[in-house]
Computed example of a mutant assay.
Amino acid sequence: MFGKGHFILLMINLVITLVLFLASDEQSLLTLINSFFYVAFFYFVAALLLFVIKGRVLDGITRSFRRFGKMMSKGLLDFEENGDPSQWVNRSFLRYLQFQAAVLIGLMLILLAIFYLI
């Protein structure tokens, strides 16, 4: 289901999290949880933004802005050449980001459970 690239990027993300953890002033479980949050938040927001774009929410708005721009330029410029924003998003890249976000958030939640149980 998920290829070797997913796990290589996951290991890179874990190294980035470890670097953030070790670069902090205080090394504690809470700092590790915060480091996971910083990395996971980036993936979550990026995946959420691409999910909204892929869901064709912005296609109508983009189409109307292009029509308005074409009308204002009196047909001199062609704004239709780029396609709809939903066509720009690659579905496999979106799944890639969702996988990274889900794993990092899952690890963060496990660490939060350990933090509150101790």
Rank of each mutant, 00 (worst) to 15 (best):
F2H: 14
G3R: 08
G3P: 07
I8G: 03
I8F: 02
I8E: 10
L9N: 11
L10G: 00
I12G: 05
N13W: 08
V15Y: 12
V15Q: 04
T17A: 11
L18C: 03
V19P: 07
F21Q: 04
F21H: 00
L22V: 11
L22S: 08
E26K: 15
S28K: 14
L32F: 05
I33S: 03
I33M: 01
N34M: 09
N34F: 04
S35A: 15
F36K: 01
F36D: 01
F36P: 06
V39C: 06
A40C: 04
F41Q: 09
F41W: 14
F42C: 05
F42Q: 07
L49Q: 05
L50M: 12
F51A: 13
V52S: 09
I53L: 12
K54E: 10
K54G: 01
K54V: 00
K54H: 12
K54P: 03
K54L: 02
G55L: 03
G55T: 02
L58Y: 06
D59T: 05
D59E: 08
I61F: 14
T62A: 15
T62G: 04
R66A: 07
R67K: 14
R67G: 12
F68T: 07
G69H: 01
M71F: 14
M71V: 05
M72V: 15
K74Q: 10
G75W: 00
G75L: 07
L76C: 00
L77I: 15
L77R: 06
D78L: 11
E80V: 00
E81R: 15
P85W: 02
S86G: 09
S92I: 08
R95S: 04
Y96S: 01
Y96K: 09
L97A: 03
L97S: 00
Q98T: 09
F99L: 10
Q100S: 08
A102G: 13
V103M: 08
L104E: 05
M108T: 02
L109Q: 12
L111T: 04
A113M: 12
I114P: 05
I114E: 13
Y116D: 06
